[in-house]
Each structure stands twice: as structure tokens, then as C-alpha cells.
Amino acid sequence: MTIKRFNPIILLAALGLTLTVQAHSPKEHMTDAEQPNCKSMSNMDHTKMDTNDPVMQAMMKQCMKGMHPNESEQEEAQLDPQDDGKRSAEQHSEHQH
């Protein structure tokens, strides 16, 4: 009987663990995704660049995102649920529902 009383607790704990893993795995994949090498863009022939060309626009979009490199590092640092503050608590609930 004692075992039965603890079952829902164990179940909840297990569920919580699974959800945490699910919530974080896509993010963890992102950390080893290849980064756009935007430095090579500055070596390109600027006279041939046409801002109306979708190829050019796509490259600019990729490299604009790279302008805020610190943001993603902060997110990675907060992967441990124990010590994160309000901001990441919001992020977690976003993932789980």
C-alpha cells in the first residue's frame, strides 16, 4: 500500500524529467549547428552585390542575426533549471505547453 501511495509522485517526477529533456533537446542541437562564416562576406566583391537579389538578401539576414552573439550564449548558460531566474522560467513554460 505504501508503494501505491508513492506511485503518482514517482510518475510526476518521471514526467517532469521527460518534459525537461524534451524541452531542451532541440536547443542543445542548435549549439553544435554550423555558424554562418560572415567574415568571408567582407572579402566579397562589393561592386557585384545587388541588394535586390534574394541570394544577397538571404546572406544579409544570416549575418544580421550574428550581430547579437551574446544572447545565445546566455541562453545556453541557463540550461540548468536549478539556478535560473524569472526570465528562463518563462522560457520553460513556453516550451512545455
Partner: peptide, 26 residues
């Protein structure tokens, strides 16, 4: 359609997945 126009540098920048917010690729 545009792949034959790309040089290795342009290809690398356009195809890299890093730095995206990942929302469209779950």
C-alpha cells in the same frame, strides 16, 4: 534554382543553421 550561381562562401553562409531561433524547424 540558385544553387549553380553560388560560390562556396555564399553557400556556407546561406545554408548554416547556427544562430537561428529554431522555431520553424522543431
Amino acid at each position: 534554382q540558385r544553387l549553380p550561381d553560388l560560390d562556396p562562401e555564399q553557400y556556407q553562409i546561406i545554408t548554416a543553421r547556427g544562430e537561428t531561433n529554431g522555431s520553424s524547424h522543431h
